[in-house]
Amino acid sequence: MTDRRSDCLFCKIVAGEVPADIVREGERTIAFRDINPQAPTHVLIIPRDHYPDMASAGAAGIGLLDEIAREAGEIARAEGIADSGYRMVFNTGPGAGQTIFHVHGHLLGGRGLEWPPG
């Protein structure tokens, strides 16, 4: 496991130092509404431990990305978007649009999501 970073916004949310609209909490994950939603449902799912991106979380080999995917399914059901469909997005690196370097999946749904995404 990795430590929490004092300069990381998402680590501060995990620690309760920064408020967030929490949707669901698990032992290893926390999910909250995005402050700049791009769809009617836009929830961020993050691990409580700090990993800078999806690649580092996956390389840890501890099933964390599987857990994030399970949480996404549970949240989609609770939000009423599981049957109509939803999208999970992981931006990895600045060129992909990652601005907070704590791995996080964007759960998006509640409207049509065209392809390609942009």
Results as ranks from 00 to 15, higher is better:
residue 3 D to N: 15
residue 70 R to E: 14
residue 93 G to F: 09
residue 47 P to V: 02
residue 52 P to C: 00
residue 46 I to N: 02
residue 18 V to K: 07
residue 67 E to V: 09
residue 27 E to M: 06
residue 11 C to Y: 09
residue 24 R to K: 13
residue 61 G to A: 03
residue 49 D to G: 12
residue 19 P to D: 14
residue 110 G to K: 06
residue 1 M to Q: 12
residue 72 A to I: 04
residue 5 R to A: 05
residue 56 S to D: 11
residue 77 R to H: 10
residue 87 R to P: 08
residue 30 I to Q: 03
residue 85 G to E: 14
residue 16 G to S: 07
residue 6 S to K: 14
residue 44 L to H: 05
residue 54 M to P: 01
residue 34 D to H: 08
residue 13 I to S: 00
residue 87 R to V: 13
residue 116 P to I: 00
residue 22 I to K: 03
residue 95 G to N: 13
residue 92 T to A: 15
residue 64 L to A: 03
residue 88 M to F: 13
residue 94 P to F: 10
residue 63 G to H: 11
residue 23 V to R: 04
residue 53 D to H: 03
residue 73 G to F: 01
residue 65 L to M: 06
residue 106 H to E: 04
residue 75 I to W: 01
residue 56 S to G: 06
residue 18 V to A: 10
residue 63 G to T: 05
residue 36 N to I: 10
residue 14 V to M: 08
residue 26 G to N: 08
residue 68 I to P: 01
residue 16 G to T: 05
residue 11 C to T: 06
residue 86 Y to N: 10
residue 107 L to M: 02
residue 73 G to I: 05
residue 109 G to W: 00
residue 73 G to E: 14
residue 77 R to Q: 07
residue 7 D to G: 06
residue 68 I to C: 07
residue 42 H to P: 09
residue 74 E to S: 05
residue 44 L to K: 08
residue 24 R to G: 00
residue 50 H to D: 03
residue 79 E to L: 07
residue 82 A to M: 13
residue 24 R to C: 02
residue 58 G to N: 09
residue 9 L to E: 11
residue 99 T to L: 13
residue 66 D to F: 04
residue 52 P to S: 07
residue 46 I to M: 04
residue 31 A to E: 01
residue 90 F to Q: 10
residue 46 I to E: 07
residue 38 Q to L: 11
residue 72 A to P: 07
residue 79 E to H: 03
residue 111 R to V: 01
residue 19 P to R: 07
residue 28 R to A: 01
residue 80 G to T: 12
residue 29 T to H: 11
residue 53 D to K: 00
residue 95 G to I: 15
residue 28 R to M: 05
residue 30 I to R: 08
residue 29 T to C: 05
residue 110 G to F: 03
residue 82 A to K: 12
residue 34 D to K: 08
residue 53 D to A: 11
residue 17 E to W: 05
residue 117 P to T: 00
residue 38 Q to W: 06
residue 76 A to Q: 10
residue 5 R to P: 09
residue 18 V to I: 15
residue 69 A to D: 11
residue 48 R to Y: 04
residue 71 E to S: 02
residue 108 L to K: 11
residue 90 F to I: 08
residue 86 Y to I: 10
residue 24 R to A: 12
residue 23 V to G: 00
residue 4 R to C: 09
residue 19 P to M: 02
residue 114 E to H: 01
residue 112 G to E: 12
residue 70 R to D: 06
residue 2 T to A: 15
residue 21 D to E: 14
residue 99 T to I: 13
residue 101 F to S: 14
residue 73 G to V: 05
residue 37 P to E: 07
residue 87 R to W: 09
residue 96 A to Y: 12
residue 14 V to Y: 04
residue 104 H to K: 08
residue 71 E to Q: 13
residue 102 H to S: 14
residue 78 A to E: 13
residue 74 E to H: 08
residue 17 E to S: 14
residue 63 G to L: 02
residue 37 P to L: 10
residue 86 Y to A: 08
residue 9 L to P: 09
residue 3 D to Y: 11
residue 109 G to S: 09
residue 114 E to D: 04
residue 74 E to I: 10
residue 55 A to W: 10
residue 20 A to M: 02
residue 65 L to P: 01
residue 59 A to S: 15
residue 31 A to R: 00
residue 45 I to F: 00
residue 84 S to V: 13
residue 88 M to K: 11
residue 30 I to V: 14
residue 40 P to A: 08
residue 79 E to P: 02
residue 63 G to P: 09
residue 8 C to V: 05
residue 59 A to G: 07
residue 20 A to G: 06
residue 92 T to V: 15
residue 19 P to H: 01
residue 46 I to L: 07
residue 110 G to D: 00
residue 19 P to W: 01
residue 38 Q to M: 14
residue 105 G to P: 08
residue 54 M to V: 15
